[in-house]
Every structure is written in structure tokens, then in C-alpha cells.
Amino acid sequence: MNTTDLATYNFAYLDEQTKRMIRRAILKAIAIPGYQVPFASREMPMPYGWGTGGVQVTAAILGPDDVLKVIDQGADDTTNAVSIRAFFQKVANVAVTTKTREATIIQTRHRIPEEKLTAGQTLVYQVPIPEPLRFLEPRETETRKMHALEEYGLMHVKLYEDIAKNGHIATTYAYPVKVEGRYVMDPSPTPKFDNPKMHRSEALQLFGAGREKRIYAVPPYTDVVSLDFEDHPFEIQTFDKPCALCGAKNVYLDEVVLDDRGGRMFVCSDTDHCEDRCANGHRGHLAYNKEAAE
């Protein structure tokens, strides 16, 4: 057994043939916004379901001049984000950052950064189940036909049943969108709070689903409209209070349990956004007071 061979991997891990295959899929995905391009997803050295699709997309586009940011739940320091960032540092020696505005590529799971993304940036989503119709129809053979025929009645029926039963659309994340008036697309399990950020974003948005072997894309300045009804228009989550640390309003907040007596606080899910605001002197009502502590 030649064990020395085991440690030699190509730049960004993937072999060049695999990168070409993924790159071709990305170009077609961009040309057909919201359509899921099948690709021959590879086994990655992290488990399926843990971001292998996003990792393959990032590995295929990443170059030596890129600056990479990886977030999970909006945070740079969640364990899986740390692990994926460390992977790219190891296999591509790429510069990394936690600052949204410094990044050229942002790989994300479950959030879109609060700060508006710009034209030089690419947002890479990790996607578990790319098919928005999957929970209505488990068969790929059927859902593919529905997309081909633009037959999305089932989705509207499902959303309307929610309204009839609960008075609300009971979908709070992975809320389906229609891209450029044609394909219904799963935005990945981001909270619907983030859906409006996808609409006509300046950044290129790429979606990778490794286990399900699909890549899709939303080019910049592309219409991304959340499905709704005239009498029940789409609305995003709102929070009663601002972030307890930085005082930000109109951002997505995490609920943090403080004690066993029902104590709760709400803080920014986007940790970079929160830290940036704190550094610029913004204070929430539970902000850590440095001067007082010293």
C-alpha cells in the first residue's frame, strides 16, 4: 500500500475533470434561472447533507485571489461553518474573512447576510432538498414533468390549504419562489424573511445540492417572487424588539434562552452584521458594556 499517495489532492480538492463538469452545469444553470441542472455530484470528505453541494460549487469556482466567507445559521463560528472554512484553507490556501463586504464568495447554509450584497460577490447556498415540489410529490419523474409543463397548481393548492386550515401560509422557511416568471424554486431552508433579498440581487446566487445532485442559479437582477395570493400577500417575519446586543431593527433574530425561568433575549442571527454594528457604537439593551466591566 502506498500511503504517501493518500495525501495529495488537487487545488480546491476536486480533480479538473470534475470541476469542468460542475462548471458546465453552472453556466447552464445561469442560462436557465431557477432550473435544476443535474450534475454528477462527487463524494466529498464531509457527509452528504452537510454542505457537499455548496462545497463542490465553491471548489469549482474558487481561485487563488478569492476571499471566502462561510456561514451557517448566519454565523461564521458555528461548527460546520468553521469546518468548511478550514477545509478550503487547507485544500486551496484561500484567504478567508468573516466580513460580508470583504468576501468575493460567501458559502451559506440557512441565511442570506443582512448587508446588501454587491456585484463582485457570489453567494453559494448549501441545499438539502432542491425540489420545491418534493414534499407534494416524492417522485422525481413526476416533478420533472411538472416543471417541464410549468404545472405548479399543486403548490398553490398546498399553500391555500394552509390558509383555509390555519388562516396563514404555514411555510416559514424554504418558502417557494418563482424565478423570472417561469420556474418555481426552493430558496434552500432560509427563513422567508430572507426571500426579498434574492429579488434582483446584485450578486450572483448559486445553489448546490450534493446528495440530490442538482445545481441551480439566480443571475443578478433577476425577478424572484415569493408565491402568494391576492387576499393573502406574502409577508416576512417581524420581531417585536431590536437586537439586544446591537439594537438593529428589521434583521433576523435568534432567540437565546438565558435561564430556566423563561428568560429570553433576541440577538442578530448574522454575527458579522451584529459585530460590525457594535464596533460602530450601536448598543442594544443587553449590550456588553466594556467600560463598565473594566
Binding site: 479538473e16 469542468r20 453556466l27 469556482i61 474558487l62 481561485g63 487563488p64 450572483l204 442559479a217 443571475p219
Partner: peptide
């Protein structure tokens, strides 16, 4: 690295 650079140009231009 050259293939990566050409691809990024193509990706940006396609997008």
C-alpha cells in the same frame, strides 16, 4: 489556475 480564471470570466459574463 488558467482554466479557473477563464471559467470565472465566462461565469461573470454569462451572469
Amino acid at each position: 489556475f488558467e482554466a479557473q480564471a477563464v471559467f470565472r470570466t465566462l461565469m461573470d459574463c454569462m451572469a
